[in-house]
Protein backbone atom coordinates (compact mmCIF):
# COMPACT_ATOMS: atom_id res chain seq x y z
CA UNK A 1 0.00 0.00 0.00
CA UNK A 2 1.44 3.35 -1.05
CA UNK A 3 1.84 6.09 1.56
CA UNK A 4 -1.24 8.24 2.21
CA UNK A 5 -0.33 11.75 1.08
CA UNK A 6 -3.47 13.73 1.83
CA UNK A 7 -3.74 15.93 4.92
CA UNK A 8 -4.91 14.16 8.08
CA UNK A 9 -7.21 15.46 10.83
CA UNK A 10 -5.82 16.96 14.02
CA UNK A 11 -7.13 14.90 16.91
CA UNK A 12 -7.37 16.69 20.25
CA UNK A 13 -8.97 16.10 23.63
CA UNK A 14 -12.26 17.66 22.55
CA UNK A 15 -12.77 15.79 19.29
CA UNK A 16 -11.09 12.48 20.20
CA UNK A 17 -14.41 10.67 20.88
CA UNK A 18 -15.50 11.51 17.33
CA UNK A 19 -12.36 10.02 15.79
CA UNK A 20 -12.48 6.96 18.07
CA UNK A 21 -16.07 6.54 16.92
CA UNK A 22 -15.31 6.48 13.24
CA UNK A 23 -12.60 3.85 13.91
CA UNK A 24 -15.51 1.69 15.17
CA UNK A 25 -17.79 2.57 12.22
CA UNK A 26 -19.90 4.93 14.31
CA UNK A 27 -20.76 8.51 13.35
CA UNK A 28 -20.99 10.26 16.69
CA UNK A 29 -22.34 13.68 17.53
CA UNK A 30 -22.46 15.61 20.76
CA UNK A 31 -25.97 15.72 22.21
CA UNK A 32 -26.73 18.46 24.69
CA UNK A 33 -28.14 17.14 27.97
CA UNK A 34 -30.00 20.40 28.47
CA UNK A 35 -31.98 20.87 25.25
CA UNK A 36 -31.30 17.62 23.41
CA UNK A 37 -29.79 19.45 20.43
CA UNK A 38 -27.04 17.77 18.43
CA UNK A 39 -23.79 19.38 17.41
CA UNK A 40 -20.97 18.13 15.25
CA UNK A 41 -18.34 20.48 16.56
CA UNK A 42 -16.59 19.72 19.75
CA UNK A 43 -17.64 23.06 21.20
CA UNK A 44 -17.59 23.21 24.98
CA UNK A 45 -21.01 24.88 25.26
CA UNK A 46 -24.26 24.19 23.42
CA UNK A 47 -24.76 27.05 20.91
CA UNK A 48 -28.55 26.68 21.30
CA UNK A 49 -29.06 26.72 25.08
CA UNK A 50 -25.60 27.43 26.45
CA UNK A 51 -25.61 24.20 28.44
CA UNK A 52 -22.25 22.73 29.37
CA UNK A 53 -23.20 19.06 29.69
CA UNK A 54 -23.23 16.93 26.56
CA UNK A 55 -22.72 13.29 25.62
CA UNK A 56 -21.24 11.75 22.51
CA UNK A 57 -23.91 9.52 20.95
CA UNK A 58 -24.05 7.35 17.86
CA UNK A 59 -26.28 8.73 15.10
CA UNK A 60 -28.15 7.30 12.14
CA UNK A 61 -25.41 8.17 9.65
CA UNK A 62 -28.12 9.31 7.26
CA UNK A 63 -28.57 12.70 5.69
CA UNK A 64 -29.05 14.67 2.49
CA UNK A 65 -26.71 16.72 0.33
CA UNK A 66 -27.08 20.44 1.14
CA UNK A 67 -24.67 21.65 -1.53
CA UNK A 68 -21.43 20.58 -3.16
CA UNK A 69 -18.41 21.71 -5.14
CA UNK A 70 -16.14 19.98 -7.61
CA UNK A 71 -12.47 20.86 -7.16
CA UNK A 72 -10.60 21.14 -10.45
CA UNK A 73 -7.64 22.88 -8.87
CA UNK A 74 -5.37 20.78 -6.65
CA UNK A 75 -4.64 23.07 -3.74
CA UNK A 76 -3.26 20.08 -1.80
CA UNK A 77 -0.44 18.02 -3.29
CA UNK A 78 -2.10 14.85 -2.00
CA UNK A 79 -5.24 15.48 -4.07
CA UNK A 80 -3.33 16.20 -7.29
CA UNK A 81 -4.04 12.82 -8.87
CA UNK A 82 -7.75 12.96 -8.06
CA UNK A 83 -8.94 16.20 -9.64
CA UNK A 84 -11.70 16.81 -10.36
CA UNK A 85 -12.84 15.55 -6.96
CA UNK A 86 -16.03 16.35 -5.05
CA UNK A 87 -16.62 17.82 -1.61
CA UNK A 88 -20.22 17.62 -0.43
CA UNK A 89 -21.93 19.33 2.47
CA UNK A 90 -24.24 16.80 4.12
CA UNK A 91 -27.07 17.78 6.44
CA UNK A 92 -27.45 14.91 8.87
CA UNK A 93 -30.87 13.66 9.92
CA UNK A 94 -30.02 14.90 13.44
CA UNK A 95 -29.49 18.45 12.15
CA UNK A 96 -25.77 19.28 12.05
CA UNK A 97 -23.97 19.61 8.75
CA UNK A 98 -20.56 18.33 7.83
CA UNK A 99 -18.28 18.39 4.84
CA UNK A 100 -17.20 15.09 3.35
CA UNK A 101 -16.59 13.30 0.06
CA UNK A 102 -19.31 11.40 -1.80
CA UNK A 103 -18.19 7.96 -3.00
CA UNK A 104 -20.04 5.45 -5.17
CA UNK A 105 -21.39 8.08 -7.60
CA UNK A 106 -19.94 10.07 -10.47
CA UNK A 107 -19.50 13.80 -9.92
CA UNK A 108 -22.19 14.56 -12.50
CA UNK A 109 -24.71 12.41 -10.61
CA UNK A 110 -24.53 14.53 -7.46
CA UNK A 111 -27.62 16.61 -6.72
CA UNK A 112 -28.73 18.86 -3.88
CA UNK A 113 -31.23 16.99 -1.73
CA UNK A 114 -29.82 13.55 -2.62
CA UNK A 115 -30.24 11.07 0.29
CA UNK A 116 -26.90 9.71 1.46
CA UNK A 117 -25.50 7.46 4.18
CA UNK A 118 -22.19 7.19 5.99
CA UNK A 119 -19.42 4.81 4.98
CA UNK A 120 -16.09 4.46 6.71
CA UNK A 121 -12.71 4.39 5.05
CA UNK A 122 -9.50 3.42 6.86
CA UNK A 123 -7.01 5.77 5.24
CA UNK A 124 -4.02 4.95 7.48
CA UNK A 125 -3.51 2.33 10.19
CA UNK A 126 -4.52 4.98 12.75
CA UNK A 127 -7.06 7.15 10.97
CA UNK A 128 -10.51 6.43 9.56
CA UNK A 129 -12.53 9.03 7.66
CA UNK A 130 -16.29 9.08 7.38
CA UNK A 131 -17.45 9.54 3.81
CA UNK A 132 -20.92 9.21 2.30
CA UNK A 133 -22.52 7.22 -0.52
CA UNK A 134 -25.95 7.45 -2.15
CA UNK A 135 -28.50 5.85 0.20
CA UNK A 136 -29.58 2.51 -1.14
Amino acid sequence: MSAYRKPLPAVDDLNRPFWEGVRRRELRLLRCEGCGGYRFRSFRLCPKCGGDKATWVETSGKGTIWSYGIFHKAYFEGFKDEVPYNVVLVELAEGPRLYTNLVGARNDQIRIGMPVEAVFEDVTPEVTLVKFKPAG
Partner: peptide, 30 residues
Protein backbone atom coordinates in the same frame (compact mmCIF):
# COMPACT_ATOMS: atom_id res chain seq x y z
CA UNK B 1 -1.35 22.29 12.27
CA UNK B 2 -3.02 20.81 15.30
CA UNK B 3 -5.94 23.23 15.19
CA UNK B 4 -9.01 21.29 14.22
CA UNK B 5 -11.36 24.21 14.67
CA UNK B 6 -9.51 26.76 12.56
CA UNK B 7 -9.32 24.61 9.48
CA UNK B 8 -11.63 21.63 9.75
CA UNK B 9 -12.53 19.40 6.81
CA UNK B 10 -9.34 20.12 4.85
CA UNK B 11 -8.69 16.38 4.97
CA UNK B 12 -11.56 16.00 2.48
CA UNK B 13 -9.81 18.46 0.18
CA UNK B 14 -12.04 21.35 1.22
CA UNK B 15 -10.16 24.65 1.12
CA UNK B 16 -10.23 28.25 -0.19
CA UNK B 17 -12.79 31.06 0.07
CA UNK B 18 -13.69 30.36 -3.57
CA UNK B 19 -15.01 26.94 -2.61
CA UNK B 20 -17.40 28.54 -0.12
CA UNK B 21 -18.76 30.72 -2.90
CA UNK B 22 -18.90 27.75 -5.26
CA UNK B 23 -21.12 25.85 -2.81
CA UNK B 24 -23.41 28.86 -2.64
CA UNK B 25 -23.42 29.29 -6.41
CA UNK B 26 -24.45 25.65 -6.76
CA UNK B 27 -27.24 26.19 -4.28
CA UNK B 28 -28.44 29.23 -6.23
CA UNK B 29 -28.24 27.40 -9.57
CA UNK B 30 -30.15 24.33 -8.39
Amino acid sequence: PGREYSSAFYYYGLTSPGAASAFQARLHFE
